[in-house]
């Protein structure tokens, strides 16, 4: 029993250890900032990976939920005087509710049709955020009130490093729990054969909706953090390119690999930062590297590397 528990949560434990140890190797405070960004994105990617990698349902509009989470921690405190921490939860609840309402009709769609429907949803969120300037500040966005926990004003990157790291470990634990549960098995079954899943009594539509809502809430929390961390938010956070970035992180790290979610997020957060030294070549290089990765590690970094090691051992 004990070993069962430990193997299940092993990736979460590894991540916890990484979060704690990493700062000892940071040459400067700047790295806390990068670390915090990686963890925040990884949180959203874990959620999206549950949807895409496990249940096999694509979403090209997940940044929409990032946006809902982000604007919750602006609109709540600024217009309603709510504390920011509460708004993180409110945002997640709103995102979950929106995912429920949107997911019900569109999750019946399959494959590329689902892709275009989710893409449309993401665009709708971004358009509303851009145009309802009375609430959202329009295309220029708004500055985000700082997070205050009790009497502690959260500012520095290091604080956010720890908050994001701890939340990510929590996100890992929930995801890993879910995978080894009746719901998790049902979701993986749906990925491989919806018909067989149905015939075994799985309410496929409801399970898809459940995981869509959960993954939306992951993204929403990540969006709230991102806004609070950056101190400023624009509608770009909900844009198509952000959605694509999240999907790229999932695929690059490895569909269905929870650890891969962190690796994918790390690569795609760190890479552009590292490439800025190439100035105008940055985008071309990023695209090139993405192509090369996907051609040679087509199953994603973590599964491909794992397969290589398994092959060696034999």
């Amino acid at each position: 029993m004990r070993t069962l528990l430990e193997t299940r949560l092993l990736p979460a434990i590894v991540v916890a250890v990484i979060v704690v140890i990493l700062p000892y190797f940071f040459p400067s405070a700047y790295y806390f900032r990068v670390g915090a960004l990686v963890f925040i994105f990884a949180l959203a990617v874990v959620g999206l990976n549950l949807l895409m990698g496990f249940a096999g349902q694509v979403s090209l509009g997940h940044a929409g939920f990032l946006g809902i989470g982000a604007y919750s921690v602006v609109i709540g405190p600024v217009y309603f005087g709510l504390p920011s921490w509460l708004c993180v939860f409110v945002g997640a609840t709103v995102s979950g509710a929106v995912a429920f309402l949107v997911g019900r009709p569109i999750l019946r769609l399959k494959g590329h049709y689902l892709a275009v429907a989710t893409l449309g949803f993401g665009l709708l969120v971004a358009i509303v955020l851009t145009n309802e300037a009375g609430w959202t500040g329009g295309p220029d966005g708004m500055s985000v009130p700082r997070l205050a926990l009790f009497n502690w004003q959260v500012r520095g990157s290091d604080s956010w490093y720890w908050i994001a790291g701890a939340t990510l470990v929590g996100g890992f634990v929930l995801a890993l729990n879910l995978m080894e549960s009746p719901t998790g098995r049902a979701l993986q079954a749906i990925h491989d054969s919806e018909i067989a899943a149905l015939v075994l009594g799985i309410d496929v539509a409801r399970k898809k909706l459940t995981i869509f809502v959960i993954s939306a809430m992951y993204a929403s929390v990540a969006g709230s953090y991102l806004a609070l961390f950056n101190g400023h938010v624009t509608p770009d956070i909900a844009g198509f390119l952000r959605s694509i970035e999240l999907v790229a992180m999932v695929v690059l790290g490895g569909m269905g690999s929870i650890v891969g979610s962190l690796v994918g997020a790390a690569v795609l957060v760190v890479l552009p930062q590292a490439l800025t030294i190439f100035h105008e070549y940055e985008q071309a290089l990023l695209g090139f590297i993405l192509m090369v990765f996907m051609i040679f590690l087509r199953r994603g970094i973590v599964p491909s590397v794992a397969a290589t090691f398994a092959g060696r051992r034999k």
């Binding site: 549960s181 009746p182 098995r185 491989d192 054969s193 067989a196 899943a197 799985i202 959960i214």
Partner: peptide, 28 residues
């Protein structure tokens, strides 16, 4: 119609689905 990403045991475990009594919160 095999769940080819899952292990043999897990395939059969899915067959138990209708007898499993847990909720999403319990699972999470």
């Amino acid at each position: 119609q095999i769940f080819s990403r899952m292990s043999v045991l897990e395939n059969v475990m899915v067959g138990r689905h209708r007898h499993e009594r847990t909720g999403i919160f319990a699972d999470l």
